[in-house]
Every structure is written in C-alpha cells, then in structure tokens.
C-alpha cells in the first residue's frame, strides 16, 4: 500500500512537472477579506482585461515591504502606461491583522489590499514563503510567478507587464 502511494505521488509529481510550469488557467476561488472586513472571493478579482499583479506579503516580512515600497514610487506611472493593477495579499495572522490597515495607509500604498488570515488563498496557490508574486494576463490566467525579492526585480516584473499590456505572450 505504501509503495503504491509513493508511486502514485511520484507519478503525479513528474506528470505535473512535465505539464505545467507555475501557470494556472484559472485563479482559485477562495474567500478573503478587504480592509473593511467584507468577504470577497479571489475569483472576482477584476481589472477589465488588463494585467493584474498579485503579491503575497506580511507586515513582518522586510523584503516584501521593500518590494512594495519600491513599486509604490513608480505605481502611478505603471497604472497610467499599462493599466496594471497590483493586489497585495497580506498573510498576517491574528497577531498583526489589525495592524494591516494602518500599516498600508501609513506607508502610502495605493494598492488593493486583502487579508488572507487563515492562509486559504496562500495554500490554494502553493505559496511557500513571502514575498511571492504572480502575474495574471488580461484573461486572468497566471502566466508567471516569482519567489523572493532582490532590488531590481520590480524592473523585471514591469517589463513583463508591458509585454502583456501590449498583447504579447510571455514564456
């Protein structure tokens, strides 16, 4: 029995590795909360056919904050040039959840921010550690993802956003 399971796991694992490369044809529908406590399904994230960036972060994660602060300074230009929308998903637990709204406003972020307190969306998207960034095309297909942040990553991300906005595919 155990052998069977291991075989099964290994089989499925290799199959999926061959078949997929971190691309999702649909975003999983999981309930998250906005900063006012309203429940919203991740399936209803919308940007009228333009690209969406989904960034997993936490108030205790310095590289996450560095990334979102780096984007903050350029975000108005990004929106104007490509129509992109950044959705920041906080995975802060009960310890920091109440801190998120004052933190976000205090940093001057103009992103759409949601709370994923029970990490339901994080698990549905198999996020190991923040920061973790997903890029969705106009059809809300996840076409790219990246784990971690080093300065300059925001420029790489934006080049991809520009390609998507121009109707090109990225691979």
């Amino acid at each position: 029995m155990r052998k069977f399971i291991l075989f099964f796991v290994a089989g499925v694992f290799s199959l999926s590795l061959a078949a997929q490369d971190g691309t999702f044809s649909t975003l999983p529908s999981v309930s998250v909360k906005d900063l006012r406590g309203n429940t919203i399904s991740s399936g209803s994230f919308e940007n009228d056919g333009r690209p969406i960036i989904i960034s997993f972060w936490a108030t205790w994660c310095k590289p996450c904050i560095a990334e979102l602060n780096a984007i903050r300074d350029m975000y108005p230009d990004w929106v104007e040039e490509t129509g992109v929308k950044l959705i920041a998903i906080s995975i802060d637990d009960a310890r920091n959840a109440a801190r998120v709204r004052p933190f976000v406003l205090g940093q001057g972020w103009e992103y759409e921010v949601y709370l994923d307190e029970n990490s339901d969306l994080r698990r549905a998207l198999n996020v190991n550690n923040p920061p973790h960034t997903f890029l969705l095309n106009g059809n809300k297909e996840i076409v790219w993802q990246h784990n971690g942040y080093v300065p300059g990553d925001e420029d790489v991300l934006y080049e991809l956003v520009e390609k998507l906005a121009a109707g090109q595919t990225i691979k």
Binding site: A98, R99, R101, P102, F103, L105, G106, Q107, G108
Partner: peptide, 15 residues
Amino acid sequence: SVLTYSRPRLGVMVA
C-alpha cells in the same frame, strides 16, 4: 481590544 485610525500616509494603533 484593538483601536486603529488610518488615513493616507498615517496609521495609528493601540491595543
């Protein structure tokens, strides 16, 4: 009990 006040560029929290 957690009380927060937020507006753009300002966040305050007491708990």
